[in-house]
């Protein structure tokens, strides 16, 4: 059977695929929003003078980084209901998985960026009477945040692509939508090509936004 590229298939499947892409965006934005909060909290905990807080953060980061996200998703969605008797809605579970997963990596990004700020900045802040939290908020964090942007952009792109794994728990995101179309029309080549192009468009948009943000936040004179 000769292969016959049919662009019309792509055009026809676009509306449905975009619906899937919409869910992908929700998962990414929601997941990364909470993931950044988790990352900031655990990243700073890792730098805390308290041994207990450092250990808790270390445990979280090691556990999440050390297990596949697919396993985390299946455990949360299929495993936990066996123990607790209720199942989260798939979208909710999806957002949690992205948040918890990206949070572990973002925590390391936050820790590295904060640590990279010269210790003289903390000393200068303290020397004018600011307490440790104020110094973090007004002096260290704004500088560290700028250094976080490139690795954060990286993580955002990874997390967006990782949402495709959530098809396994039945979230109708972009890849699953494509899968469902293929099940009906058997045009795997055209449909997955279209799916890939939509992912590419989204990841390139993230890269562009981060690039603009980086430029706008650049410190004058540097």
């Amino acid at each position: 059977m000769a292969f016959n590229f049919e662009p019309a298939v792509i055009v026809d499947s676009i509306p449905q695929l975009l619906k899937g892409a919409e869910l992908t965006i929700y998962l990414t934005v929601g997941g990364l929003f909470f993931g950044f909060i988790l990352g900031a909290i655990f990243g700073l905990m890792k730098l805390s003078p308290s041994w207990v807080l450092r250990k808790i953060a270390g445990f979280y980061i090691e556990t999440i980084r050390g297990t596949p996200m697919l396993v985390q998703a299946m455990f949360l969605y299929f495993g936990l209901p066996m123990a607790f008797g209720f199942r989260l809605p798939a979208m909710g579970a999806g957002v949690i998985v992205i948040a918890v997963n990206s949070g572990a990596y973002i925590a390391e990004i936050v820790r590295g960026a904060v640590q990279s700020i010269d210790s003289g900045q903390m000393e200068a802040g303290r020397s004018i009477g600011l307490n440790a939290i104020q110094t973090m908020r007004y002096i260290i964090w704004p500088q560290a945040f700028r250094r976080m942007l490139p690795p954060l952009g990286n993580q955002f792109i990874i997390s967006l692509k990782d949402t495709s794994l959530l098809m396994i728990i039945g979230v109708g995101e972009l890849l699953r939508t494509g899968d469902e179309i293929v099940a009906v029309n058997f045009r795997a080549f055209e449909v997955y090509l279209a799916v890939g192009l939509i992912y590419l468009t989204m990841t390139m948009s993230i890269a562009k936004v981060l690039q603009i943000l980086e430029k706008r936040m650049k410190i004058e004179g540097r």
Partner: peptide, 20 residues
Amino acid sequence: INMVRTEATMVFQHFNLFPH
């Protein structure tokens, strides 16, 4: 100690100005 530091502030060898 934060209050005491405001009574004896410091000038550093490497300035430590806030660059942002």
